[in-house]
Structure formats: C-alpha cells, structure tokens
Design a protein around this nucleic acid. Sequence first.
DNA 1: TTGAAAGCGCTAACAG
DNA 2: CTGTTAGCGCTTTCAA
Lengths: 340, 340
Amino acid sequence: MANATMHDVAKLAGVSLATVGRVLHQNGYVSRENREKVEAAVRQLGYIPNSAAQSLKNSSSHMLGHILRFSPNLLFEQISQEVDRAAAQRGYSVLSFTKYESPGEDQRIVTEFISRRVEGVIITSILNFDPALVQKLLDAGIPTVRIERAPEHADRVLVDDLQGAREGAAALVRAGHRDIAYMGLGGNAQVERLRLEGYRQALEEGGLPLCPHLEQLVEDYSPQAGYQAMAALWAGPRPTAVFAAADSLASGALQFLYQAGARVPQDVSFMGYDNTLATLLAPPLDSVGIQAGPMGEAAVDLLLRRRQHPLEPGQPGKEILVPTRLVSRGTVAPSSRLSL
Amino acid sequence: MANATMHDVAKLAGVSLATVGRVLHQNGYVSRENREKVEAAVRQLGYIPNSAAQSLKNSSSHMLGHILRFSPNLLFEQISQEVDRAAAQRGYSVLSFTKYESPGEDQRIVTEFISRRVEGVIITSILNFDPALVQKLLDAGIPTVRIERAPEHADRVLVDDLQGAREGAAALVRAGHRDIAYMGLGGNAQVERLRLEGYRQALEEGGLPLCPHLEQLVEDYSPQAGYQAMAALWAGPRPTAVFAAADSLASGALQFLYQAGARVPQDVSFMGYDNTLATLLAPPLDSVGIQAGPMGEAAVDLLLRRRQHPLEPGQPGKEILVPTRLVSRGTVAPSSRLSL
DNA sequence: TTGAAAGCGCTAACAG
DNA sequence: CTGTTAGCGCTTTCAA
C-alpha cells in the first residue's frame, strides 16, 4: 500500500542509501554492477521519490502558485492552461487558486503559497490584489509576476493593447468605414485606456473625426453590457462598423443586432477583441487575438529566471509585451455607405 | 528572507519545540503564560508552517489531484473551478493537470501525483485514461473518482443525462412540435447513449414517431460539427425544433441558421444542453443545465470519505447522479406548423 | 505542565 | 567506487 522508500530500494539492491542516491541522480561513481542492481530494485518496487522529503531537504518545492479570477470569457482559462503547460515542460507543477470575493481570501491563498514553499507566484489580471500580501510573498523570497493587469513596478507580462486595438480599428478604417463605434470598459485602468486609445489613434490616422457618441463605455465585460451598448448605438446616428474591446461584449452586441434584425456584416461590420468567443458566435467574428500561449510561457520563464536574479526592492520590474494577432473571419466588409 | 521555523518561534518565546507544537495544535496543556509568549512570537515572526515537513511527518499532503482535458465548451473549466472551491473549503489544495495527447503524458501525471502524495485524484471526463495507471494510483493508496465519463466499477459522479435529455426534448414536445431533430455525438459511450435515449423517450411519451433522418450524429463537439449537422437537417425535410446535445454544437447550428437567414425561435425552436455557452449565443438559448457546483462538491466529498472506507477491489464503486436544471430563455416557441 | 528526542524520506558532505 | 551520517522542519511519545 504505502510507497517504497529509498531505504527499501537500498535493501533490495543490497547497497547503501548513498549509492541509490547516486544512481537516481546520475552523479558520482557507481559500479556498473551496482547501478544495475539499483535500477532493477527501483523497477521492481515501482519506487517513486517522496517529493515532500525532497522539498524539505532541498528547500525547493518545484511548484508555482497561480491566482486568477473567474471571468465571463475564456481568456483566463486559456492562460491557466498555458501556464500549466509551460510549467510542466520545465518540471514544475502549478497550484491554482481562483479568487472569489470573500474576506480573508487573499490572505488564505498567500499563506498557502508560503506554507507550500512555492517557488514563484503568477497573478493573472487582478490589479488590486492586496499589495501588502504581494510584499509578504516577496519577503518570503517568492518572486511574483503579474499577467495583464499590473502595477508599474512589478514584473509583468502584458498584452500590447495599444497596438492591438489600433490594428483592429484600422482594419475597419481600411474597409472604408467612417462611422466606427467603440464599446469597451470605462475607468482608467491601463488595459482599458490603451484599447480606447488604440481605437482613437486608428481613426485619426485614417483622417476620421472622433465622435463621443460613438464611444460606448460600459461597466463590465458581460454580454448584457454589450447588449445595452449596442442598443444605445443603434438608437442614435448609426455606425457602419463596431469595434468591441472584448468578445464577451461582442456576444451581447450580436444578441441585440439579432433581435433588431440587423445583419453582420451586411448592415454593420464588426470586430471583436481577445478572440476567445469569436469562433462560437454567429457569425464567427473577426477578432484581435490575445495569445495565451506566449503569455503563459513568458510568465513562467520570468519567474524562474528571477530565482537567479531576484528583483531588488526599488528596481523597476521587467515588462514583457506580447503582441496580438488579428484573425479575420469575414465580419469586416467594405462600407456601403456613400462617403461623399 | 527564508521563513521562520518552529525552532525560531520556540527560541524567541523561550520555550521548547513541544510547547510551541501544543499551542499551534491547541492540544495538550500549556500554561496561559507560555501560550501567550508563543502566540506573540508566532505573530512577530510571521511564522507559517512548512507544509513539506508536515506532509513528511504526517504522510498526508492535504492536496488533491485533478486531471482533465481541454474541451471546446466551458463545462470542464467550470467543474475545475468548483472542484477547487470545494476542496479549499475542506482545507485541501488542488494540483490540476490538463491532459494533452502526448506520449507518456498519463504516466507523467500519475507519477507526479504519487510523488506528491496527493490524497485523492479526480479524473474528469476521460473515459480512456490508462486503466493500468488508475490501478497504480489505487495501489499507492490514492482513491480516485471519475466525473462524467466513468467505467462502471469506479467511484463516479455523473450527470443524469437520461433525465436531462428527456426533459429538454419534452419541453419541445410540450410546445406542440412534431418534427424535433436531435444532434449529438455518435458512438456508444454512456453519456451519448443516454442523451439520445432521453430524446427518444420524450418523443415516444409524446406519441411522436422517431425519424432516423432527424437524428444527426456527429463526430465531435465542435461548432463545426454542429454547423454541418444543422446544414444537413435544413436540407432534408425540415424540423420545426432542434435539440442539440451540447451548447457547443448549438453554437455551430446557430451559425448555420444565421447564414441561412432562418430565425430562432420564429422559424425553428431550439434547445441546448449543458448551459455553458447558452447565455453567450444569439439568441440566448434554452438549455438543459449541468450543475458543475454540486458535481465538484460530490467528487471531493466522495474522495475524502474514501480515506476512511477505501474501495475494496471487486466492490462496485459508488455512483452519484447529479440532476440537471433546465433554463428557459425563450428559444422554445409554440409550433406554428399545422399539425392536423 | 514541560522538554528531550526519535524519525518521516531524502540529499550530500565526508570519510573511507 | 562505496557507506555513514547529519540534518531539512515538524509531530508526538515518553519521561520528568
């Protein structure tokens, strides 16, 4: 029942603990004969090292921690997968916690990470994660990296939202649209500011005026918010194209258009953002893709590299900017509205 | 930098290790005076126990393992969240692995679980997970529970798919539809058999004939498959209602209908299954909801209970059937086709 | 009511 | 080339 230990292996092979250790770690000299005896014993017993003992001895757990929050789109789930995969490839396992809004939650998670002696922590898209607790991790010698929403001073992996949004809106401009609406989150968090700014830059670069009534700023990324925003746009002077700063908003916007009987792209062109739900919607949407794979890899690498060169207090953190990738599926059509 | 140990606490408090232990575990007798000294020292040092040492000593890791596979819908992500949450509430952390199809993957994951001495493993919706490896877990004294796809003999948490599908199709029957199509996965895995069977039962109970050409069996749960299935249905004698055995299939079906210019529910009523994407689609879909919360809880509880009463070899595993919950959003309309 | 001490399984320095 | 040994940090028995 209980697992075999190195001791059992040594006894069965008729050698000492140290010899077993040498074979297992392939270091030091071991006679061919003993090596084979040990290998046979390992196989026969199905010996698997006890990682608690290893952790204790080496003070290294080979685990990373990941904190994220549930969200209405699939992006964080994707990032979670990719973080796990990247970690696995580097011999690490990931302890994930989904943060819920319950008092003491942050505290509990951080304590758990410290207790488990994780070797790094990834915080995905939670700007306000209690800074004192992040500091507590750093004090415990645990490097921390942020994905997507991050304070300036932290190590972080960000989406190139300015460029991404610019590219998304530019595609609409290039198709000849002049009345291009934007829907996205309000507030002045960096992510939202950059997406809006990218949209505006694209319009200006296309020689188009910015119309406040075409900028719908909503309160959250729910489909409902997208629905409302689209309803508002449809009531006023109608745009011929819409750029939604998240596929989840696009989802709601399409629900409104469906109900209103307007068709995409015949009646209005559409561009989404993040490329998570895009393939699931009707019609499948053009969307500015966020690349979860590279982000997960970058985060894990940054963390592991910090083990050699810890972030000195006061030093600015390292920022890795991951480019977006626009995917076209036919919801951007040439503008049919006469422009002269 | 490195964390304080019990030793540090003892020294600072001027007592022995054993006394610190007593305070920490609230057992044994400790004088009020010493208790307060220890508590003060713990606070001052920010002492957090090293769980590797605890695991080693207690041979119990307070971790569970979870294996799941990436899927095109959101169900498994939901289950993953709920498993994590249920485990956290019971003082356990979860080590999750997403299984990719790469050789040696199963082996690697199981070895990792045994090495970490997880106290139970949840396998979500992977019927063919190498049985020899599951046996290896059991041999190592690690109980295992399956979610959604499970061999008969295993402890398992299943969706009541027969009842769920019956209820979903029955809603269409009640609305007066006589030509109700089904789209779902072929093959004879239990999940798929039961959903199809539920659909058929509902039709029979409504006195409707079963028409083979209305049963579209596809190869996978992708939107593309749903699209194709809907195209096939739309080409033949058209149904007035469609029951999709997964929201991801519904997603593709709606894409086809959108393109074909048919409207839901005016031209065809629609019922989805699993209720994951339903709120994101246009129009938001009626769907038979799978309850990830109760499933996650049941799985964790089953696992933890097995620590007291291990599953004897030969004994049949325990099965927990979680009911579905139909959610209406207006895509089932009365049939307009004359029935007499 | 308290402390000393053994040992969980593993690693690695040291002595042969 | 091989074996002995001292811990890593914690729990718990035993003796005081």
